[in-house]
C-alpha cells in the first residue's frame, strides 16, 4: 500500500490541539485512575472528617448564642481564627496544616497509582509515543497531584471561608478578610507544587507503594520530629529547616505575612530557598527518569 493509501485510511478530520492540551488529558486520566480506587475515597473521607469539625465550629461561632468567654475558648481549642488580621492565628491555614497527615497518606497512594504504575507496568511509552514531550507528561502528572492536594486542603478551606461569610448577615466578612483568598491560593500553590514535584520524582524512582510510603513518612514525619528535637537540644532554630512540612508552611505563609511563632518569623525566606533548591533537584531527577524506552538488562 502506498504512503498515500495509508494516509487516506480513516482520514482525520478534526483539528489537532497543541501538545500542551495533552497535559489536561493526562491529568484527567491520572485522576480517574485514582478515583476508581475505593481506598482513595476512604482516605478522603477521613480527611474530610476534619473539615466537618471545622464547619461545625464555624456554625457554632456564628449561629449559637454563647458568652464571649466560651466563644474564645472554642476558638482557642481549635486553634482557629476566622479573621485575616489576627496576628496569632490564621484559621484557614491552620486547617490546611492540620490536614497534613491525611495529605501525606493520600500522596503515598497517589505516587504509586498515578506515577509508579506507569513505570512499573510499562505505560510510559504509550504516553510518550504521542505528539507530546516529556515535559507535557510531567506537567500533566504534577497537575493531577496538585488537584489531589487541593481537594483535601485548599478547596475545603475555601468552603469554610465561604461558609463563614454565608452565616453572617452581610458581605462584610468577605470584604474585610479578602487577604485570605490570595493567601490560601498562594499557600496552595506552594504546598501543591512542591509536594507534587517531590512525590513525582520519588515515585518515578521507587514505583512501589511500600518504599514510597516509607520514604514519604520518613521525610514528612520523622525529619520533623528530629528537627524539633535538635532545635530543643542545641537551641539553634535553623534545625527546623530540616522539616519539609514546616518549610512548606513557612514558604506558604509568605503570601499571608502572618507567622504565629518566633521561630516561624525567622525562617520563611530560608525555608523558601531550601524548598526551591530541593524542588529543582527533584524536578531534574524526574525529567531524567521519564523516558519513552525502558532499557532492560
Amino acid at each position: 500500500m502506498s504512503a498515500n493509501g495509508v494516509g487516506d485510511y480513516r482520514p482525520w478530520h478534526g483539528e489537532r490541539r497543541a501538545p500542551l492540551a495533552a497535559c489536561g488529558a493526562i491529568m484527567r486520566t491520572s485522576l480517574r485512575q485514582l478515583f476508581r480506587r475505593k481506598v482513595y475515597w476512604i482516605v478522603l473521607a477521613i480527611g474530610l472528617g476534619q473539615y466537618l469539625v471545622y464547619a461545625s465550629v464555624i456554625y457554632g461561632l456564628t449561629q449559637m448564642q454563647m458568652p464571649e468567654r466560651s466563644k474564645n475558648m472554642l476558638l482557642q481549642s481549635f486553634n482557629f481564627s476566622p479573621n485575616a488580621d489576627d496576628p496569632q492565628e490564621t484559621g484557614y491555614l491552620q486547617f490546611v496544616e492540620a490536614q497534613s497527615l491525611v495529605v501525606m497518606i493520600l500522596l503515598a497512594l497517589c505516587g504509586s497509582q498515578m506515577i509508579g504504575s506507569d513505570f512499573r507496568d510499562g505505560v510510559l511509552p504509550f504516553y510518550l509515543s504521542r505528539r507530546i514531550e516529556r515535559r507535557h507528561y510531567v506537567l500533566g502528572k504534577i497537575l493531577a497531584i496538585i488537584v489531589v492536594v487541593w481537594l483535601l486542603t485548599v478547596v475545603p478551606a475555601f468552603a469554610l471561608f465561604i461558609e463563614f461569610g454565608l452565616f453572617t448577615t452581610s458581605l462584610d466578612y468577605w470584604w474585610e478578610n479578602w487577604k485570605i483568598v490570595p493567601a490560601l491560593l498562594g499557600y496552595g500553590l506552594v504546598l501543591g507544587g512542591v509536594t507534587a514535584v517531590w512525590l513525582a520524582a520519588i515515585s518515578a524512582y521507587l514505583q512501589r507503594l511500600a518504599p514510597i510510603a516509607v520514604t514519604w513518612a520518613s521525610l514528612f514525619l520523622l525529619t520533623g520530629r528530629l528537627a524539633l528535637a535538635l532545635r530543643d537540644a542545641t537551641g539553634d532554630r535553623r534545625w527546623l529547616l530540616l522539616d519539609p512540612w514546616r518549610d512548606l508552611r513557612l514558604a506558604g505563609r509568605l503570601f499571608y505575612g502572618v507567622f504565629p511563632t518566633a521561630d516561624d518569623r525567622q525562617l520563611p525566606l530560608q525555608a523558601a530557598a531550601l524548598l526551591a533548591v530541593v524542588t529543582a533537584i527533584a524536578f531534574a531527577a524526574l525529567m531524567r527518569r521519564v523516558r519513552a524506552v525502558e532499557v532492560v538488562s
Binding site: P211, T215, A229
Partner: peptide, 20 residues
Amino acid sequence: SVGTLMLLFPLAACTLFVAR
C-alpha cells in the same frame, strides 16, 4: 527490595541525629 533500601533513610536520619 527497594523497601529495604529506603529503610536506610530513616535509619540514617536517626543515626545522624544521635551523632549530632
